[in-house]
């Protein structure tokens, strides 16, 4: 019965008016409190996008730049998932810098990488994050740096200075090697020419003469 018919029915039969009012109230209640069924059970996708949404700026996507991604290129079947904590000797040996490889008291691969799903990282609270949001994982220990990064004091921005909307933040792993985050020493570019007749100071630098 349409709303118009219901109204007409109520008009025609005053005894039904009470019932019609109740029906309208029920309808309004259902409309106001209606939620789709899938709102009750969030999918992994909605968990992943959660950290991004709390930031006031966007982050440079990291996944397109990864060399060995997706991991499923090599890890194809169940037999390729050996999650036993051990010292790695054949593969990923060079990545053992940031954690003590095989030391039980320290971090190892699955402190950050998800145990079952190699395409994702995992935080200590079980939150699943993509490689684009590595800052969630790094920030668990490096909290003060994450705080500075969110304020745009630490790290780099790509784009324009005009507003946060026109710039993208470089994620931690854009500059730092995630498996050895300390900056590597590097050869500096050549020093400036000495003015004619000036002798180069010693590499120890100037000493105060008084």
């Amino acid at each position: 019965m349409g709303f118009k018919n219901l109204k007409r029915a109520c008009f025609l039969k005053p005894s039904l008016r009470k019932l019609g009012g109740l029906a309208t109230a029920c309808l309004a209640f259902i409309v106001l409190t209606y939620q789709p069924l899938w709102a009750e059970s969030p999918t992994p996708e909605s968990t992943e996008s959660a950290p991004e949404s709390i930031l006031s700026f966007s982050v440079v996507p990291r996944i397109p730049k990864l060399n060995m991604y997706p991991c499923t290129d090599c890890h194809t079947g169940d037999k390729d998932y050996n999650n036993q904590e051990r010292i790695l000797k054949e593969e990923h040996v060079e990545m053992a810098t940031h954690f003590r490889n095989g030391d039980k008291d320290q971090r190892w691969c699955h402190s950050c990488h998800h145990e079952k799903d190699y395409l994702h990282l995992t935080a200590q609270n079980g939150q699943i994050v993509t490689f684009n949001e590595a800052y969630v994982v790094c920030g668990q220990c490096h909290g003060t740096i994450l705080r500075d990064w969110k304020k745009n004091i630490h790290g780099r921005r790509v784009g324009k200075w005009v507003s946060p909307a026109e710039a993208q933040a470089a994620s931690c792993t854009e500059c730092h090697n995630s498996h050895g985050p300390k900056f590597k020493h590097q050869k500096p570019l050549p020093p400036p020419q000495l003015p004619r007749g000036k002798k180069a100071p010693s590499q120890e630098g100037h000493k105060k003469e008084h």
Partner: peptide, 28 residues
């Protein structure tokens, strides 16, 4: 060159102790 990068000993902010002609194999 507009920018001069001074190499300074830690613990001092006296620019006269800085050296802009440093040439090392690696920095810092």
């Amino acid at each position: 060159q507009y920018i001069k990068v001074l190499e300074m000993p830690k613990g001092s902010l006296d620019v006269h102790e800085g050296n802009m002609y440093y040439d090392h194999e690696d920095v810092p």
